[in-house]
Design a protein around this nucleic acid. Structure first.
Lengths: 203, 203
DNA sequence: GTCTATAGGGAGATAGAC
DNA sequence: GTCTATCTCCCTATAGAC
């Protein structure tokens, strides 16, 4: 594998460092000086790659969603990997968790630090977030034909809540594997969502 | 109702303003100048009430947990309000959501901004968090006798994930009431948690 | 592509008058 | 209990040398 001279390498390392700092500290607490030090350059040099701090972090957050979308689409592309509806959903849950824990810090940065970013930056990212959420809503509507459709968007929010907060406590090196975690979340979600059919309409 | 001269009133208003700013902006982005302006005083005056920014926010976060604990204990104190296990859990879920949406911004501030605060501050709060989480683990263990006990701590984490992220999307003025939300979350959680008994052991 | 040097602004915190 | 004034520090961002 030939290693060509990659001019974007420095830029990439800045992005990686920014994502890691975001997870640990949030937006405002993360300084360009720290990021530069992590990479081994000076703060001013970052402006050769990005126009501003906001510009840099827009790219980090966007990449965080792209990682999730790519994981989601990789399941879409192989629709015959499993037999049952439950197993199919579990694949998507596993992909989402994989984006959080196995493909760098970008998705983790997005999930933990998005709400610590300035409003203007968030506005630029919201359409991408909406797109990913829409994919999930469509998936659930296509697959859970026996569940009242109007309940699914709310159920998805509960599912996202359970999945995304794993970033606060799950240890990939602990006893429970990501596969095991995906299985547990999926089973609990699917049993729960089916129960909504039996439920009295809400006040 | 006689209105006595209350020397802690100014202090209380600073705390309230700090909690609201925390929800909107996170720890580092919230400045003492802003908080002072919200209250109608100058930044330097805050130091008459608190030793430091960190000191002020420790009190905000602590109060956020106290509100949850008080809501939890108010259910403990009236154990004969309902017949079934499900209804009983629903009362606690409703109390937790009430702390998030109906008793000021303190609990919301804690849930959204805790991880944006400096490490030293977080360390001071962690024992209080642990205490509240322990109450929930005990509650579930006492009440869900038919569920394998080792699964309950994980199930509680899923439940907290679903409850706490409602702060990102739930609108108390919308069509769905807090009672309705509590009912939906509880039903989905309980059906899901019972399904764990049937599940293969995880890898 | 990275450096040094620095401009310009805003943060937390303190001292002392009122 | 609040004010004004100010100290000190660190941030983002820019300019120009190498």
């Amino acid at each position: 594998m030939r290693r060509t001279r990659d001019t974007s390498n420095g830029r990439q390392r800045v992005l990686d460092a920014a994502a890691e700092r975001l997870v640990a500290q949030g937006y405002t607490a993360t300084t360009l000086r720290e990021i530069a030090a992590d990479v081994g350059i000076k703060a001013g040099s970052i402006y050769h790659h990005f126009d501003s701090k906001e510009d840099l972090f827009i790219e980090v957050f966007s990449r965080g969603i792209e990682v999730m979308v790519e994981a989601f689409e990789s399941i879409d592309a192989s629709p015959d990997l499993c037999d049952t509806v439950n197993d199919r959903i579990e694949l998507y849950v596993r992909a989402h968790l994989g984006a959080l824990f196995e493909h760098g810090s970008y998705t983790a940065a997005h999930v933990t630090a998005f709400f610590t970013a300035p409003n203007e930056l968030r506005s630029a990212i919201v359409p991408l977030r909406d797109d990913y959420e829409h994919r999930w809503n469509s998936l659930l509507a296509d697959v859970l034909l026996d569940v009242e459709a109007s309940r699914l968007p709310l159920a998805r929010l509960f599912l996202f809540g359970a999945m995304n907060t794993t970033i606060e406590w799950f240890d990939p090196l602990g006893d429970l594997s990501l596969d095991g975690l995906a299985n547990l979340i999926t089973v609990q979600f699917l049993e729960g969502v089916h129960s909504l059919n039996l439920q009295r309409s809400t006040q």
